[in-house]
């Protein structure tokens, strides 16, 4: 069925006189020329506007800030990869954090705990976008897809050096096409939200209720 359908559809699309595109304005380059300070300012402004928490830290202080955030939220546990550069640093000082959990088995073997027993997840990011206040997340075997989705709190570290002006700039500068797309790539711009009831914003619909960004 599918093969006949395919042939029929493609034949119909080839039949008519081919439409001309007629337009050539497909330019995508970044419109802005913001310096680092401006990028950080805009990123923070946009994130805060959608109720994300943003903490400005340094390579010396970021672990302290993560620890303080966990304490302030009263987290019982924190899902952290033991394999990533950042995750290793947390695991090395595990006593300063809530019980550290690891996502080291396929989801099928611990789905119940992930869905109902994990308070928060900590991940790195692939970069950020200043214009829209966005984290670029590319989940991997070390930091799987559901980490930034299922737990009620998501704590993410963004290195300022990877904060781009626009999405278009990030795609180009990081060479997404050349590198090949991963199974899943995400832009995350705040905690989960909906305005489906009376246009009133409500947070934490299906994804995290809280998003905490640690800028380093």
């Amino acid at each position: 069925m599918s093969n006949t359908a395919r042939a029929n559809i493609l034949a119909r699309l080839r039949e008519p006189q081919r439409p001309e595109c007629g337009f050539s304005e497909r330019d995508y380059l970044s419109r802005y020329d913001w310096d680092t300070a401006e990028r950080v300012r805009r990123f923070t402004e946009r994130m805060v506007a959608v109720r994300a928490e943003v903490h400005h830290t340094t390579p010396e202080t970021w672990l302290d800030v993560v620890s303080q955030v966990c304490a302030a939220k009263g987290l019982n546990n924190l899902l952290v990869s033991p394999e990533t550069v950042l995750g290793k640093q947390l695991h090395a000082q595990a006593e300063r954090f809530p019980t550290l959990k690891t996502y080291d088995h396929p989801i099928e073997s611990w789905k119940q705990e992930l869905f109902y027993g994990i308070d928060a997840a900590f991940t790195g990011t692939y970069g950020g976008i200043a214009e829209t206040g966005t984290l670029i997340v590319m989940p991997s075997a070390d930091e799987p897809r559901l980490m930034s989705l299922v737990p009620p709190v998501h704590i993410a570290v963004l290195e300022v050096a990877k904060l781009y002006t626009t999405f278009a700039e990030a795609v180009q500068a990081q060479g997404w096409v050349q590198a090949g797309m991963p199974t899943n790539a995400l832009l995350i711009s705040g905690p989960s939200k909906s305005a489906d009831i009376e246009q009133t914003l409500a947070y934490g619909v299906h994804g995290p209720k809280e998003l905490v960004v640690i800028l380093v």
Partner: peptide
């Protein structure tokens, strides 16, 4: 659509779970 600069999630899917990946 909704007057948002961007939505909370923009989800780009390029494949099923690869060997070694733990979900999806």
């Amino acid at each position: 659509a909704t007057g948002q600069p961007i939505t909370t999630y923009f989800n780009m899917i390029s494949g099923p779970r690869k060997p070694g990946e733990k979900d999806g």
